[in-house]
Design a protein around this nucleic acid. Structure first.
Lengths: 186, 186
DNA sequence: GCATGATTAGACCAATCGGTCTAGGCTTCT
DNA sequence: AGAAGCCTAGACCGATTGGTCTAATCATGC
C-alpha cells in the first residue's frame, strides 16, 4: 500500500492535462504515455478501447474535480451569490496557475474525435452532474427546486462563456467579474 | 465574371465547416480539399503556410458572418433586449440547421493546433470585433459607452456558454432562453 | 518452489498526416 | 503568334498517428 497513484490514475491525469491543452486529436498517445511514464501495453490493458476510453475517463474525472470545487465553495456559503463568487475566484486562481492557456476544464475536452455521439453523451452526463451539484446547494440555500436548477444552469453557462473569453485574453479578471454580471453590482 | 465562388473562398468555407465539426487537428487536409473540390497545389498557392493560414482565414471569415447576423438583429431593434433576442433566435435556427452538432461558430475553431499564440491572437481579435459590433448597437440604442461594452461582453459570454450547453443537449431551447436568463422574465 | 493470472514493456504495423515539388494548362499581355 | 505568370493538378515524401501482438515480469495462491 503506497500512496503512489496507480498506473491507471497517472494515465487519466496525464491525459486530462494534455487534452485540456491541445484537445483530443491534438494529443498523441506517445505524449500521454511519456508524461504518465507508462508503456503502451498498460494503456490497452486498462483501457481496451484505447484513446476514446481514456478520454471518457478523463472527462469523468474532471467533472468530479469540478464538483469538489463546487462543494468547497458552497458548503459554508451564506447565500447563493457568495457560493458563486467563491467558485469563480477559486477557478480564476486555477486559471492563473494553468498559465491562462488551457481550455475550460469541463467543456474543453469532450467534443472532437471519432465516435462523436459517445463523447457527446459523456459530456452531457458530466454537465448534468455539475449542474445538479450546484442546484443542490441552491435548494439548501433556500431556492425552490425549479429556481435552483435555473440558477445553476445560468451560473454554469456564464462560467463557461467567461472562461473562454478569459482564455483568449489571457486575463482571469473576466472570471472574477462574473457574479457582478449575473447579479448586478455587489 | 461568374458568380461561382473563387477557389480561395471554397477552401475557406469548406475549412470553416469542417473545423467547426471536428476541430483543427481532427480535420485532415485531404478532407478539406475533397469538399472544396480543389487540389493540394492550389491550397499552398493561396495559403503558403498551409493549414494554419487556412484556419486563420476561416476564423476571420466566421467572425464576419457573425457580425452580419448581429447587424441583421440590431439594425431595426427598438432596444437592446430586442436585439439580443432576435440574435439568439436567429442563431438557434442556425443551430438546428447544423444538426445541433457543430461547435459554436466563433469560438470553436480557434484554439488547438501548433503555434498556439498565433491562434490565440486571431481569436482575441475576432472576439473583439464581434463585441465591438454589438457594443456599437448598444450605444446607438442609448447606452453609455462603458455600459454598452459591458452589456455586449455579457451578451457574448452568455451566448457562448449557451451554445455549448445547447450542443451537449442537442436542444436549441437553451439559446432561445438566454434573454430571460440575462434580463429576467419578459 | 511452482503455477497462474494480472500487469508491464516495447517492437512493430498499416494508415494517415501535413507539406514539397515538378508539370501542365490557362489567361493575358505584347 | 509567342512569351510570361498565375493557378491547377496530383504524385510523392518522411514523420507521426492509433492500435496490435508477443514476451517478460510481477504478485499471489498453493
Amino acid at each position: 500500500m503506497t500512496d503512489e497513484p496507480t498506473t491507471r490514475d497517472r494515465l487519466v491525469q496525464a491525459a486530462t492535462r494534455l487534452f485540456r491543452q491541445r484537445g483530443y486529436d491534438g494529443t498523441g498517445l506517445t505524449e500521454i504515455l511519456a508524461q504518465a511514464g507508462v508503456p503502451k501495453g498498460s494503456l490497452y490493458h486498462h483501457f481496451p478501447d484505447g484513446k476514446a476510453d481514456l478520454a471518457c475517463a478523463a472527462a469523468h474525472w474532471t467533472a468530479s474535480e469540478i464538483i469538489r470545487v463546487i462543494d468547497d465553495s458552497f458548503r459554508t456559503a451564506p447565500d447563493w451569490r457568495h457560493g458563486v463568487t467563491t467558485f469563480c475566484y477559486k477557478m480564476a486562481k486555477l486559471f492563473d496557475i494553468l498559465n491562462s492557456a488551457d481550455a475550460c476544464p469541463i467543456f474543453g475536452l469532450m467534443f472532437e474525435g471519432p465516435d462523436h455521439e459517445r463523447f457527446r453523451a459523456q459530456a452531457e452526463q458530466s454537465f448534468d452532474r455539475i449542474i445538479a451539484a450546484a442546484a443542490n446547494y441552491g435548494e439548501a440555500l433556500g431556492l425552490g427546486p425549479e429556481a435552483a436548477l435555473d440558477a445553476a444552469e445560468t451560473f454554469i453557462i456564464g462560467f463557461q462563456g467567461s472562461w473562454t473569453l478569459a482564455r483568449t485574453r489571457r486575463k482571469s479578471d473576466v472570471l472574477r467579474g462574473l457574479p457582478n454580471r449575473l447579479y448586478g453590482p455587489a
